[in-house]
């Protein structure tokens, strides 16, 4: 009861922080645009409000805000939210604090798919420039299915088995990926940079694919909060209170993997967000999934938008890999929280 009350305080606070971070991020970059101007440009695009705003900016500024920075910031928010939510779900379902969105091989699969696209210059006619995310997503999902069916014995999946199967598939696909890398000289840099994660390849098109996926999956996953909490009390206990453990687990893993796949396919494998954001939320607000899921979604968005802003500006004009920044920012903060935690929290 008490904790729930907290949620209605903290969720709006988190949203405010997100909007703040996003608007700061839109103003950062080579072109000098303050955030009044940025907001004016954004509002001028919204039907209904646009009539109240007088256009007083150059078209190049409009392009920079609307076509370059805003999609990137929004994509950062979506990817961050997706990874953090997926991490929270994986940790809950697998009952393992080390679980992150990549533990079941989804990201290795996606990276392998992406590498193939780069190396062979694949371009599927129907998909056009969406070939890369589509293929990455498909390979990520395939790896999940392999893991799942490897660990299925007598129509049941055991937790330890699925995590082991994930590790095995991950290393196998990792080896395939290394092989592709070793054999391709010219694309090495592109692939490595993609693997370290970046939001640089963004436009509205990417947003249009990833936003609906993340929105729908997030909403669906919110319906399983009770089940996630009940799994926390043990699988048998959950079964005895009426949760179909096998079915619920399969469904939740699929949901989490879909958003992981979607996120990785547009931004590469950005590490650390999915592992650490849910843990930070847990350390700060407790283990109740009624709080963890919503706050992880918004918290992940904040974290990644912030990290991307840093990645873009700290050594401008050079852009740093996002995965590097997330680890640089996340690890010390997480370490600080861990030291401060008085007892086991997972």
């Amino acid at each position: 009861m008490k904790i729930k009350h907290n949620l209605w305080v903290w969720l709006p606070v988190f949203f405010l922080i997100l909007i703040l971070v996003m608007s700061i991020s839109v103003t950062l970059g080579a072109a000098n645009i303050n955030w009044q101007l940025a907001w004016q440009i954004i509002f001028s695009k919204i039907p209904g409000i646009s009539t109240f705003i007088e256009e007083s900016w150059s078209s190049s500024n409009e392009t920079i805000v609307w076509d370059i920075r805003l999609p990137r910031v929004l994509l950062g928010a979506a990817v961050g939210a997706a990874l953090a939510l997926a991490g929270a779900i994986y940790q809950g379902v697998l009952r393992n604090p080390l679980a992150d969105p990549f533990i079941l091989g989804v990201s290795s699969g996606a990276s392998f798919g992406a590498a193939l696209v780069f190396v062979f210059g694949l371009q599927i006619v129907l998909l056009g420039r969406f070939t890369l995310p589509a293929v990455a997503f498909l390979f990520g999902f395939l790896s999940l299915l392999i893991v799942y069916f490897l660990s299925r014995v007598n129509q049941k999946v055991r937790l330890e088995t699925i995590i082991l199967a994930g590790v095995v598939v991950q290393s196998f696909i990792g080896a395939c990926l290394s092989l592709v890398l070793a054999l391709s000289n010219e694309h090495l840099q592109t692939i490595v940079f993609w693997m370290m994660g970046s939001l640089a390849l963004t436009d509205w098109g990417y947003n249009q694919i990833i936003f609906p996926i993340i929105l729908i999956v997030s909403i669906v996953s919110l319906f399983f909060i009770k089940e996630l909490n009940m799994l926390g009390l043990g699988e048998e206990a959950a079964h005895h209170s009426g949760v179909s453990v096998q079915r619920t687990r399969f469904l939740l893993l699929i949901l989490a993997s879909i958003i992981t796949g979607a996120a990785v396919s547009v931004s590469g494998a950005i590490g650390f967000v999915g592992l650490v954001v849910p843990h930070i939320i847990r350390l700060m607000f407790g283990a109740d999934y009624r709080v963890i899921l919503p706050l992880s979604i918004v918290g992940g968005a904040i974290f990644l938008v912030g990290a991307d802003a840093v990645a873009r500006t700290i050594m401008a004009p050079r852009e740093l890999p996002l995965g590097v920044i997330t680890a640089f920012l996340g690890a010390p903060f997480f370490g600080y929280l861990l030291r401060r935690a008085k007892r086991g929290y997972f």
């Binding site: 909490n229 926390g232 009390l233 043990g234 048998e236 206990a237 005895h240 407790g286 283990a287 109740d288 086991g344 929290y345 997972f346």
Partner: peptide
């Protein structure tokens, strides 16, 4: 059961 509920922090 003999294990009852896991010591989960809720």
């Amino acid at each position: 059961t003999q294990e009852g509920l896991a010591p989960y922090p809720i």
